[in-house]
């Protein structure tokens, strides 16, 4: 099953909509609650990253019996140094975004921690792609 959600850059009032929709689907599919809890963290952080940093993006979710595959891609500034971006506490978020309690440099680390596999690719000036896979049973 494939689902696709558009994410609007800069629009914080809609941040979380896509994640919430995917969570509902996983619940309906009776996926193990512990798995849902982890996946939801990764989904939300990925969605917020697009809202906070990119012009626009999309979340593509592919679910089969064994796993959920999430691909989040955006058109935006890209990440010059992915290793640095993966470090907990490193952030390029604006002061306004930080004031809302985002931009603490925990997004990408949270995503990595809560998925089984994660791959980030990016091109500066063009955009970023994040692919995450989580297996339903170990």
């Amino acid at each position: 099953m494939e689902f696709r959600y558009e994410i609007e850059g800069g629009n914080f009032s809609r941040a979380g909509h896509a994640s919430s929709a995917v969570k509902k689907i996983l619940k309906q599919l009776n996926v193990d609650n512990r798995v849902i809890k982890r996946v939801v963290v990764a989904l939300y952080e990925g969605e917020v990253n697009v809202v906070a940093h990119a012009d626009k993006g999309s979340m593509l979710v592919d679910i089969d019996e064994q796993r959920i595959k999430i691909r989040i891609e955006d058109t935006g500034p890209g990440i010059p140094d992915i290793d640095l971006a993966m470090q907990a506490g490193f952030s390029t978020a604006s002061a306004a975004v930080r004031e809302m309690g985002f931009g603490a440099g925990m997004g990408l680390p949270n995503m990595k921690k809560n998925t089984d596999q994660m791959r980030v690719t990016s091109e500066v000036g063009k955009g970023t792609q994040v692919e995450m896979i989580t297996w339903f049973s170990q």
């Binding site: 963290v41 949270n110 921690k113």
Partner: peptide
Amino acid sequence: DLLSDVMGNAAEGQVWITLQ
């Protein structure tokens, strides 16, 4: 007051205290 902190570490059924 950090949303990612709550996202990553709070647990189901907890009460969240914040000024956000």
